[in-house]
Design a protein around this nucleic acid. Structure first.
Lengths: 156, 156
DNA sequence: CAGTATACATAGCCAAGCTATGTAACTATC
DNA sequence: GATAGTTACATAGCTTGGCTATGTATACTG
């Protein structure tokens, strides 16, 4: 009786994507030891891919609130995984930069998680792997687009 | 100096998949109002897809600890989104079942999230949508496999 | 130089995750 | 059929990630 729902094919696949992601995340967390949290890695990934940036921009790009990012940056700083560089010309701001040790920790975590998941996925055909890789690129490009939209919304 | 890391193509794509999922989850959370948490919906999805089951099995299938599931079920029960049915023949156990109102709430949430995400994805080609759909099915089949492995580990 | 806007920090809350432990019920053994 | 072990769920207590509201210091602007 869902009179209002226009379940286009796109909408359906987006919903399924979110749902299956959600379950995959739990699988990844449970098969690997994984004491460290996703938020930490997400933050380092953003810094690695986009380079040093201010805390506020890091929060916007990561899609979390500024106070949440302050906490994450604090945690990362304690572990020595990022560096805080005073922003010359604005004494209020910091440039947050990924530390090499943070990148190494990220790589180690990836190794652990993918090793733990591998047995579950090890009979995928080359085609299937290519399909997954293509999907990753599709989603990545849309995340990038959303980021651009954010920047324009900012400046406009 | 990552002497041990065999970065096979599969491992690479799995790592990218986890990473991009992580960012997509934040995007979905931020573009939709989304006060409700992913764990709630994940639980209802499992119940919808696999039918009523005991709390402990629900925890295992959802890949969370039993106490975590006790809390989730409590929350779901308060909202009237599941039903607890006494297990005839075992007074310790409950059968947890998705309530129609929970399924409706799930559908409503999906509608909201996909509507909010749609603008970011609305220029995907049919091929790209098909690629995403195929990936969803691949991952879903592996989640199913992991679940079977769990059952066998249980009974063995 | 006064007032407003901006950048980050702090306070305080809630939910989701965990481990350790408790309680009640089932099972099996003698 | 009491007793011991096991199982199913609940409770306690902790950490982290997320939020809003607010504080403080710096920058900008009239």
């Amino acid at each position: 009786m869902y009179t209002g729902s226009v379940t286009s094919e796109l909408r359906t696949v987006l919903g399924d994507l979110i749902s299956v992601n959600n379950r995959l995340t739990r699988l990844a967390a449970s098969v690997s030891g994984n004491t460290e949290s996703p938020a930490i890695w997400r933050t380092i990934v953003v810094l690695r891919d986009l380079g040093p940036m201010r805390l506020g921009e890091l929060a916007r790009v990561s899609r979390v609130s500024q106070p949440t990012m302050t906490k994450l940056v604090h945690t990362l700083d304690e572990r020595g995984w990022i560096r805080r560089i005073a922003d010359a010309g604005d004494a209020r701001a910091w440039l947050i930069s990924a530390d090499p040790s943070g990148l190494a920790a990220l790589a180690a975590w990836r190794d652990e998680v993918t090793a733990a998941l591998e047995p579950t996925f090890d009979d995928l055909s080359d085609d299937e792997i290519a399909t997954l890789a293509a999907s990753v690129e599709i989603v990545r490009s849309r995340l990038e687009r959303a980021r651009e939209a954010l920047r324009e919304g900012k400046s406009a």
